[in-house]
Amino acid sequence: MKVVLTAGTGVYYDALKELFYDPFTKETGIETVLVSTGGYSEVQTKVRAMSEANNMEWDVFATTYDTVRSPAFANYVEDLGDCSELPNVESEGVDGSCLGKAVLWAATGNGIAYDESEFPNGGMKNWPDFWDVKAFPGPRALPNFGSPWYVLSAALLADGADPKDVYPLDVDRAFRKLDELRPNIAVWWTSGDQAQQLLRTREVVATMVWNGRVATLRKEGFPISFVWNGAMLDADALGITKGAPHKIAAMALLNYIYARPKAAAEFAKRLNYAIPNKHADDFLDADVASNLPTAPENWSKLVKSDAAWLAENSQKLIERWTAWISG
């Protein structure tokens, strides 16, 4: 028996494999088979294509917290209901771990990362600074991975919107602000690995990216800072594909990963992602916990998306974004 899955790339996947997937195989005998993919937009496209062709090859896939709640994606994932068939999610997960169509996984802040060496007199502190190419000169990068509301939210903050008033998104205003910065965007990246590499090679001086990616770069010795002010709360979700060829094994895997608080804590130590196991903090030092999005001083600075608004508007937003990015 096996589970075919796609769940991130690079160091993110390496940590998942070591801490969760390999132990799962050792304890259950169920093989975990990784499918190499690009960013989330590519994953979503392939899931749709396989489903519509009635040729589903994957069992478990990672996508964004927002995407899995989107009506446009509902027909491609198994409905887990209240997760009663995943008892560890109920007993070990933090409140909100069951998403109906998936389970919550790694939570992070999606904010500004900048190269300290480019700004010796002080770096960026907020999204208006990211847009200010005179005070902070140099090429930027922004993501294009299927969830454009993060970039549009940043544009509104750069235009002076109060964080509590970002939603509902003023889409016209956001695109006008993006038009201003567009000439300075050197790369529209599609995966976290690509974003990291842009900073390693100094192809850009700043980008939007997840705090865990910055933590890894700093461990490698790169002088990259992360800005929590105005960062977007982002999270992965793990879903089971509709028509999964190994659904029972996939259910077993999702249930298993929620029962490993020490592994969840180790994952957080390595990558600075908050794992939704309510006992993980028991195994974390205060300095690690303070660099997670769930730390009170960081949590208060995060911008949270409006799930109800996105459920009604995400598809139209993606269509407009696709037209804009292609133009």
Rank of each mutant, 00 (worst) to 15 (best):
A7K: 00
T9C: 14
V11M: 06
V11T: 05
V11Q: 00
L16D: 02
K17E: 13
E18K: 03
Y21Q: 13
Y21K: 10
F24R: 14
E27F: 12
G38T: 12
T45V: 09
N54Q: 12
N55M: 06
W58N: 04
F61T: 08
F61E: 02
Y65S: 02
V68I: 15
Y76T: 11
V77F: 02
E85T: 12
V94M: 15
V94I: 15
G96K: 13
S97D: 02
L99K: 02
G100Y: 03
V103M: 08
W105T: 07
N110W: 09
N110F: 13
I112P: 03
Y114Q: 08
D115F: 09
D115W: 10
E116R: 05
E118C: 14
F119R: 07
F119M: 11
P120A: 12
M124C: 07
K125V: 09
P128R: 06
P139V: 02
P139R: 04
R140A: 13
P143M: 08
P143F: 11
N144E: 08
N144H: 13
G146I: 00
S147L: 11
P148S: 14
W149M: 05
A154S: 05
A155E: 00
D159N: 12
A161P: 01
A161I: 05
D162E: 14
P163N: 08
V166I: 14
L169N: 01
A174T: 03
R176T: 14
K177S: 14
L181V: 15
L181W: 05
R182Y: 02
L198M: 08
L199S: 10
V204F: 03
W210S: 06
N211S: 08
E220H: 05
P223E: 07
P223M: 07
F226C: 04
A231N: 05
L233N: 10
L233M: 11
T241D: 08
T241E: 10
K242H: 14
P245L: 15
K247T: 09
A250T: 08
M251Y: 10
L253G: 10
L253S: 03
N255H: 06
P261W: 04
A274D: 09
P276R: 01
N277M: 15
H279T: 09
A280T: 00
D281P: 06
D281V: 08
S290A: 15
E297L: 15
E297V: 11
K304R: 03
D306W: 05
L310N: 06
S314T: 10
K316A: 15
E319K: 12
W321R: 08
W324E: 09
